[in-house]
């Protein structure tokens, strides 16, 4: 693909079909934010070092700043806006109630990075899964607690 060329991309974003015309060099994060006004996905460094741009691509946590939009043609993307319908997801509620967020900039990325962990993931496993998501405010303690609780709550809800 020529970097400057415009390419039509068809993908599903938060359950809805989207058609975009973007320059081939546009990252997924930039397209989501600028073309689709989904600004919940954040850009903290643009080089894959902070994880703030984490989204789900076909259910897998993926760095939006290191994927070209054109690669997502035919794929399904979930952003923080698509994590829950009207109420909060188990993880979101846990982050809010356990004070797992302060300035909030890393939060969408954290929630998505954690969303595929097993319900019984321990602290060590959670921290390893978050190794690529930087937080400067919380010291991570309440983030880990929020994720532990959120995963448990989500799993309980599913079983009901």
């Amino acid at each position: 693909m020529t970097l400057r060329s415009q390419i039509r991309v068809s993908m599903k974003v938060n359950g809805e079909a989207c058609e975009l015309d973007v320059p081939a060099s546009t990252t997924l994060a930039d397209s989501l934010r600028a073309q689709l006004s989904l600004t919940g996905t954040k850009v903290g460094c643009d080089v894959g070092e902070c994880g703030a741009c984490t989204v789900l691509a076909d259910g897998v946590p993926t760095l939006g700043c290191l994927v070209l939009t054109v690669e997502m043609d035919g794929h399904e993307i979930t952003t923080i806006e698509g994590v829950a319908d009207s109420r909060l997801s188990g993880l979101q509620r846990a982050f809010v109630e356990e004070a797992g967020l302060q300035c909030g900039f890393c939060t969408p990325g954290m929630i998505l990075a954690a969303s595929r962990l097993a319900a019984d993931a321990g602290d060590r496993e959670i921290r390893d899964a978050l190794a690529g998501n930087i937080c400067r405010c919380t010291g991570y303690t309440k983030i880990v607690a929020a994720i532990r609780r959120g995963l448990r709550d989500t799993s309980h809800a599913k079983r009901r």
Binding site: G48, T62, V67, A113, G132
Partner: peptide, 9 residues
């Protein structure tokens, strides 16, 4: 070698 999301790419 890196972090989870990066190591998948």
């Amino acid at each position: 070698t890196s972090a989870p999301a990066l190591s998948r790419r």
